[in-house]
Amino acid sequence: MRSLTVRRVLFLVFLGLSAVFAGVLSLCFGVRPTQLSEVQSAFFAFDPGIAEHIVVQNLRLPRAFAALIGGGALGLAGALMQVLTRNPLADPGLLGVNGGAAMGVVIAIWAFGITAQSTLVLPALAGSAVAAGLVLLLGGTGRGPDPTRLILAGAAISALFLAFTWSILILSRESLDIYRFWVLGAFSDIRMDSLWDLWPAYAIALPLAAVAAFLLDPLTLGEETARALGARVGLARLVSVLAIVLLCGTTVSMAGPIAFIGLIVPHIMRSFVGADVRVLALASFLAGALLAIVADTFGRLILPGQEIEAGAMMALIGGPVLVAIVRTRRGVVA
């Protein structure tokens, strides 16, 4: 690939290493600060009698995994979404998954009295599947999905689901009480077994997204040119939509609606690695993972004794970063 210059490869390697490094560091921080050597022995000489070992293995490790893969998935989905729709305002949740997941969660709390955060994964997954299915039905008929219709249909369906969610929230205090924490998005309540439940979804979605990135690349030249070059526009769009829904739906049901990474990370990455979709997708995956793990770790540290949810931290870090980058670097604004 000609767009893979030495500088960009180095940048990608740097991103990847930072994400792994931040992931390891995140195991050391929390209410109970732990030495790196202690973390090491938690893995290689596990002793159920030592509280630190339990904390690291059962709480911090799944959390770090979830942040890395969830953040990466959202960044990747965001890059695909922006290329697919050619719209800088399109976040991957726009395909209906966020609105659907929110409604699934609220219905589960309101109608079935579910209150534990960790049991909200299934209702969220069901809700986002229903919503995304509706969006695809409306926006994706004929020769492959048409981007403008897709995002308008997505916005309409999302608003519809959100309106139902709001009406339940206004009627039921208990729902609002749980929802207002869920909506911030956090990786804090994830255990190993829910990760085990979700990994098949990622195992399908990530390769699919890689295929989508290759198929989508010619489309940056515009639909007509891409067709003239022999690209299969309809197929490319279908594969990318499926990948986005799968990546995003799984992550939202795991960690709550974090719109931020998908919307912002690709914009930032474009100014570093250029517009080649394949490179952009990889960079967005790595940067999303990095942002998520950093936000999750900082959220634990910034207020002693309290925790700021990762989704909120991301916006508080990422928003100003985006503004600063747009103002100082050229080539961000497409």
Binding site: L176, F260, E309, A312, V326
Partner: peptide, 30 residues
């Protein structure tokens, strides 16, 4: 183009600030 990107950055940050503040007040006020 510039306006859209800056708008996204600021709007999302403010939105999260709202959500965050909502979790820090009592249920009745919320």
């Amino acid at each position: 183009g510039q306006l859209i990107l800056i708008g996204i950055g600021v709007t999302l940050t403010l939105g999260v600030l709202t959500d965050l503040l909502l979790t820090r007040i009592d249920t009745t006020s919320a």
